[in-house]
Design a protein around this nucleic acid. Structure first.
Lengths: 150, 150
DNA sequence: ACGTGGGGTTCCCTCAAGGAACTTAGACTG
DNA sequence: CAGTCTAAGTTCCTTGAGGGAACCCCACGT
């Protein structure tokens, strides 16, 4: 995977990739979010190598995305989303929306979202936290922030 | 990187990862979005190997995310976002917001977004396309869609 | 004709992903 | 108490992708 260390770059995208950018990591988060929280379940569902699954889970736990909790007196553990992790799920939701739109083809989306607030099947949209209007790539300018390099 | 082919999975997240999940791809999109559209610029900015940059650009062009356009009578090209690609930038915006919140630390965010509609420095938020209320991980149920496996 | 500079290609080396086999700790079973 | 079962890893080997440096090609400019 990435031999170059993205975590040290002065870029929030690169830093986020350092946490969840490795192959499989987003799919592991998806599984945990969907309720497949145990090692064997994920391994079977994803078809990932056990070695890599171990590495990814440790990485995600280490970065505070998942927590490892025993669920038995035997050495059995399940992984649950932390607050940081739950916020990352928004990214997955947006990835789903993009994939549904551009890659799902004839068959249509494999999964639908029902929104608790309105009870409808819907999809997420990006809006400005300040004014509430839509906020897409064409609607913004980039400015250097306080953490900008130099 | 990923030897396993995510594109064949019945999951819009996996399919999206097949397009932009390889290492560097999101950062390449970031650069193009930020106006660094040429091979040499990106290579210098990212510190990516020229070989991998070539591979990634071809992959992104092949999936309709970028377009390769000549900008000179000499063999000089720049890469521009297609509509599909521009919509992917929303993902980057959300990654930025997450990284700003959880990883930026003392120094603060390296980049700020100014929203054209309201003119304010702001950040994007996920909202329901149907009712407009916030739509985060805790606000939805998952249901099988028409493209669900079997 | 000669240099320059953008945009790649080629080559080799290292290290991560895949895969299968092995290990461990406790619980259950006879 | 010995033997079996199961979830959750660990170990080891093979393969192939990422890093890096060197090289190549082409249209200018001078």
């Amino acid at each position: 995977m990435q031999r170059t260390n993205f975590g040290d770059m002065a870029c929030s995208i690169a830093r986020t990739l350092d946490v969840i950018g490795e192959p499989w990591s987003p799919l592991i988060l998806r599984d945990v979010f969907a309720g497949m929280t145990r090692f064997e379940q994920m391994q079977a569902d994803l078809g990932i190598s056990r070695k890599v699954l171990t590495e990814r889970l440790n990485h995600l736990v280490g970065h505070g995305i998942l927590e490892r909790q025993p669920y038995d007196r035997r050495p059995r553990y399940e992984y649950v989303l932390t607050e940081r992790g739950a916020e990352l799920v928004q990214l997955l939701m947006l990835m789903t929306a993009w994939g549904d739109r551009w890659l799902a083809g004839e068959a249509g989306p494999p999964v639908l979202y029902r929104h608790h607030a309105c009870g409808e099947i819907s999809r997420p949209e990006l809006r400005c936290a300040h004014c509430g209007d839509p906020m897409s790539a064409r609607d913004i300018d980039l400015l250097p922030g306080p953490g900008a390099p130099k």
